[in-house]
Amino acid sequence: MKLVRVIDTKRCIGCRACVAACMVENFYNPGDPWNFVVEYEQGEFPNVRRVFVPMNCMHCENPPCQKACDYVGAHAIYKNEFGVVLIDYDKCIGCRYCIAVCPYGAPQYVEKLEPLFPNESFTPYERIPEENRHEVHRFRPNIVTKCTFCWHRIEKAIKENKEHLIGVHPEYTPACDLVCPVDARFFGDIENPDSKVAKIVGEKKAAQLKKEFGTRPQVYYILEGGDY
């Protein structure tokens, strides 16, 4: 099984629901978003376009972050059998080499944990205790975090023997892909030819970003202006 995401930027209307959903789902620590939308203009008035590109961890086949992490001896970053690149917070030493080498700006350094409402007490949501959080949500200062493909939801599917429902059933789909109001995001197993992602990657000429880095990202994009 190889999990991938497809983002159709031709559909994306730049609403950032996926960003908000990610923040809520993954206990956003202010300043460290796992998912963000790059927005830029092309051309000059009146021939101008605005493009929205949602970005998150690409879960590369050749993750430079992992190489850097191994290199410094921390060995905190690994890619599991489902194609998900994860960080082991117990091993992470906060050196930030992974951030330095990632061409997509995915990893985020947690300097300190802050309440969502600045200078205020934690909301009941933030007070959900550690034991009720998945390990990917047990943050502490001086670690690096990033998008996990909502590993806590995928893992649940695996544990419950519902692997075939990953990306299909809302319970087993990453939050960002779930909330998109225009259905511009898809998630699933690319090795399963019947999956939506496999079909779209095949039919719609999905591209990968920044191929020149040889990272082989596992997030595919359908781009308005073609391949980058």
Partner: peptide, 15 residues
Amino acid sequence: SVYMGEGRVMGETTL
């Protein structure tokens, strides 16, 4: 939680 929360790792004071 307001007075203890700051700088703490987890905000579960009330809990």
